[in-house]
């Protein structure tokens, strides 16, 4: 009886792994294709796109183009700084708003929460013209702040929505103990509550980061100058009306993956640490 159950479990486990592996392969296939082809000569890319680079087809021309033409290290830095700054503000203000909504009682508390969450359903791009006018009026066009402000606004609704759910379940007694011991509300928020919702912060972080990093729309409209160009916008120089410089495009895309992976690893470690820390009980 016990043996057969163990065997059935193993079969189920195997099945699960097969399904998961299939998914992984499907999801990773285009990424791997990009990476391996970025190291190949143009002719080799088209002759056999799925082949690994060998001595004959290996070519770094894509990377040399990327690093010599245009100002890619700068684009890279622009993307990274805009993403990290936006992420920081989304998490900070999102968590603060979520704490206020879940911790304090004030008139129209629920309504305010709903209003703030409304942005999840309304794409911010619908307001592009208004945003552009605003940025022109405030002189923020072609500065990183134009992007950071827009991305912060774009990320906040989901951030507030998810975090306030998590804040609501943080031990009431823990906050009470902090208040009795004379901690300020800021200390309670930063020292007691934030560390306990770290898994939620990591989740929100990942969800917020990807669309910002990949965005082409707002950099194109709000910050297209050479000094503020982001990576996605910068890579567009290789996309021509009639011909595309595939080597360069693939190399740029490969490079663009690296910081995202780095940030993801950072967040997922936080996520695991948050899950395993015993707080109360």
């Amino acid at each position: 009886m016990a043996v057969s159950r163990a065997r059935r479990n193993r079969v189920a486990e195997l099945g699960a792994h097969v399904i998961l592996l299939t998914f992984t392969v499907i999801a990773l296939f285009p990424v791997i294709l990009i990476v391996i082809n970025s190291f190949k000569s143009k002719r080799a890319i088209f002759r056999d796109p799925v082949a690994l680079p060998n001595a004959e087809t290996f070519d770094l021309v894509g990377y040399t183009t990327v690093f010599t033409q245009g100002n890619f290290p700068l684009y890279f830095w622009n993307s990274l700084s805009v993403t990290v700054a936006s992420l920081f503000f989304v998490l900070l203000f999102g968590a603060m708003a979520a704490f206020a909504l879940s911790e304090y009682k004030f008139p129209f508390n629920r309504l305010t929460g709903l209003y703030l969450a409304l942005g999840i359903m309304i794409p911010i791009r619908l307001g592009t013209i208004g945003i552009l006018k605003l940025m022109v009026a405030t002189g923020l066009v072609n500065t990183p702040w134009a992007l950071i402000l827009v991305y912060t606004a774009q990320g906040l609704p989901l951030s507030i929505f998810i975090l306030s759910e998590f804040m609501a379940v943080v031990s009431k007694d823990l906050k009470a103990a902090g208040r009795i011991d004379g901690l300020s509300e800021y200390a309670i928020f930063f020292q007691l509550v934030l560390p306990l919702v770290r898994p939620a912060l990591a989740t929100v972080g990942v969800f917020t980061m990807i669309p910002i990093w990949n965005d082409l729309w707002f950099p194109l409209i709000l910050a297209p100058s050479e000094a503020t160009k982001t990576l996605t916008l910068g890579a567009q120089v290789f996309v021509g009306q009639f011909t595309n410089n595939w080597n360069a495009i693939l190399a740029a895309m490969t490079l663009a993956i690296i910081p995202v992976i780095f940030l993801y690893v950072l967040f997922s470690r936080q996520l695991i640490r948050g899950l395993t820390a015993g707080a109360v009980k």
Binding site: D173, A176, A177, Q191, G278
Partner: peptide, 19 residues
Amino acid sequence: PPAKRGIAMVFQTYALYPH
């Protein structure tokens, strides 16, 4: 405010500072 009342409280869930 709670900290100025000269009271101390012990909770069912202990409520120790985890960090």
